[in-house]
Simulated scan of single mutants.
Amino acid sequence: MSQPLLRIPLHDLHVNMGAKMVPFAGYEMPVQYALGVKKEHLHCRAEAGLFDVSHMGQLRLRGKNAAKMLEMLVPVDIIDLPEGKQRYAFFTNDAGGIEDDLMVTNFGDHYFIVVNAACKTEDIAHLQAHLLADVELEVIHDRALLALQGPKAVDVLATLAPQVRDMVFMDAVRIPLLGQECYISRSGYTGEDGFEISVPTSHAATLATTLLEDKHVEWIGLGARDSLRLECGLCLYGHDLDKTTTPIEASLLWGISKVRRTEGERAGGFIGADVILSQIEIKAVDRKRIGLIGQTKAPVREGSLLFNADGEQVGVVTSGSFGPSVSIPVAMAYVTPHYSVIDTVLFAEVRGKKLPMTVTKMPFVAQRYFRGQ
């Protein structure tokens, strides 16, 4: 028998707000509210959306060798990560594939790590298996995770904590909101300016309700979160990233810190480094992640096969939707490198028809992270 679905702390609040709850990564999660996916998407782009992402795993890593240990598992510069800063990272395997992507924050006395819900059991085991003698891993069970995203997000959150205006993209602080210490990063997964807020579970409903009292804020479900991240060219683990896909194939070279991939004592040293660094050096992979826009109005979904003009299969779509902000179908796909050139026309098979799509640069919608004046 399948395992019963888990519930996030604010489950009842979502139901009372009219959320449609669906299974996702072992949890009952709100996929949309009364506004519907399209209006939620556009609201987040124009004002501020509140997302509940409490299904994700929150961890603390402590010890003087915690950064050294993490650098054994991720191709990212953790040792020189300044206090109060956050970085995107990914766990790699022996074949160079991506086991999960994650966020790492240096809070001085510990590293705060957020991992994907579907991978968190494996991620915790992975970390535990590589713990150094003086490093301690703590799995956090008493915090919810909210994301406030959109151009009005900073104005809304500043009413509770004016100092958030001074933060820039990937800054992180521990400050009180309504009297309870929260972990706040100026980041998110919509491409918009915004914040992710780790809040004590006992305080989560109060904080969410207070934020929703602002006229600019609406609940946003997983449906719009997916279309928002896709428009901004952001990968979703289990779809655009997986254990068989290397960071180079996924066009994530930017996610491998320079100090970990060029000559020097800290180059390499992470799991799968030989494979990944070889791909960087020879500048050759068997497939490449690309962006596509449709030449018709029909959306092209994950799993659609891609063909060249001669009818030969050359790739597959890994994420696809109609982009509400751009009013055209958008998709991410993996293709053989020859077909990754901008303006190449490919054909996606949808219900027996081959629909033309054009390879284009990503993101489809410009990212609007706040990096300072």
Rank of each mutant, 00 (worst) to 15 (best):
23 P>M: 01
36 G>N: 02
102 L>P: 04
159 T>A: 15
279 Q>V: 02
103 M>T: 09
216 H>P: 04
288 K>I: 06
247 P>D: 13
33 Y>K: 02
372 G>K: 09
322 F>Q: 07
22 V>W: 00
335 V>L: 04
247 P>G: 11
332 M>D: 06
355 L>F: 15
81 L>I: 12
98 I>V: 15
293 I>W: 09
230 L>G: 02
332 M>V: 07
192 E>C: 06
229 R>F: 11
354 K>N: 14
348 A>F: 01
179 G>M: 04
245 T>W: 15
294 G>C: 04
341 V>I: 09
173 V>H: 06
91 F>C: 06
89 A>C: 15
275 V>L: 05
210 T>W: 01
6 L>T: 12
48 A>S: 10
64 K>W: 01
186 R>H: 10
354 K>F: 08
130 H>F: 10
15 V>K: 05
266 R>C: 07
202 S>M: 02
269 G>R: 00
263 E>K: 06
252 L>D: 05
142 D>H: 09
21 M>Y: 14
1 M>L: 13
236 L>I: 12
11 H>C: 05
146 L>C: 03
64 K>Q: 09
114 V>M: 14
245 T>G: 03
317 V>D: 09
236 L>Y: 07
116 N>F: 00
337 P>L: 04
203 H>K: 01
178 L>D: 08
215 K>N: 07
214 D>F: 15
317 V>K: 01
243 K>Q: 14
75 P>G: 14
276 I>H: 00
33 Y>A: 03
104 V>N: 08
295 Q>L: 10
197 I>D: 05
227 S>C: 12
240 D>W: 05
304 S>W: 02
96 G>V: 00
251 S>H: 01
15 V>M: 04
239 H>G: 06
12 D>A: 13
235 C>T: 11
26 G>M: 03
225 R>P: 00
193 D>S: 15
303 G>P: 09
127 L>F: 10
181 E>H: 06
190 T>H: 13
372 G>I: 05
216 H>D: 11
29 M>Q: 12
32 Q>R: 14
195 F>R: 03
119 C>A: 15
297 K>Q: 15
139 V>S: 10
152 K>D: 11
333 A>H: 05
316 V>C: 07
270 F>Y: 10
51 F>D: 00
120 K>V: 08
287 R>I: 00
81 L>K: 04
204 A>C: 11
348 A>T: 07
61 L>W: 03
245 T>F: 13
131 L>A: 12
294 G>D: 02
297 K>N: 13
16 N>G: 15
7 R>A: 10
48 A>I: 09
327 S>H: 09
87 R>S: 15
53 V>G: 00
160 L>Y: 07
2 S>Y: 08
132 L>V: 10
338 H>Q: 12
261 R>D: 06
178 L>F: 05
48 A>G: 08
283 K>T: 02
202 S>Y: 00
51 F>A: 00
33 Y>N: 02
59 L>Q: 03
190 T>E: 12
360 T>A: 14
246 T>Q: 09
371 R>D: 09
361 K>R: 13
199 V>W: 00
188 G>K: 03
327 S>E: 14
25 A>L: 01
308 N>M: 06
333 A>C: 09
93 N>S: 08
123 D>M: 10
163 Q>W: 04
208 A>T: 11
